[in-house]
């Protein structure tokens, strides 16, 4: 189970731009709409499976494809310390 780190703030910018701000390090990240949806769902406490099903339905994509893409995103986020993985 992944959780968003507490010091991370998600913000929508103008014209479909999305940002994540790390209040502890001062680093900031530009994310696309899909990644923003994933991080926002994590912030709301959603489980990975639910996020995948929701995105696959919303975009009309195969769940396996979405799951692989989301897993790749979360690995990057974990490397950057933006999310934590809980047992």
């Amino acid at each position: 189970m992944y959780r968003l780190r507490q010091g991370l703030r998600l913000r929508r910018g103008p014209s479909e731009t999305f940002w994540a701000f790390d209040l502890e390090s001062g680093e900031h990240y530009e994310v696309n709409g899909t990644a923003f949806a994933v991080l926002e769902a994590l912030e709301g406490g959603a489980e990975l499976d639910m996020i995948v099903v929701t995105l696959a339905d919303e975009y009309g994509k195969c769940e396996d494809t979405v799951r692989a893409d989301v897993a790749e995103l979360l690995e990057m986020c974990e490397t950057e310390g933006l999310v934590t993985r809980e047992a």
């Binding site: 994540a20 680093e27 900031h28 990240y29 530009e30 994310v31 696309n32 709409g33 899909t34 990644a35 949806a37 994933v38 919303e58 975009y59 009309g60 994509k61 979405v66 893409d69 989301v70 790749e72 995103l73 990057m76 986020c77 950057e80």
Partner: peptide, 11 residues
Amino acid sequence: KTYEKPAIKKQ
């Protein structure tokens, strides 16, 4: 909607 692979880029 058009699907975009989730992406994050450090600034």
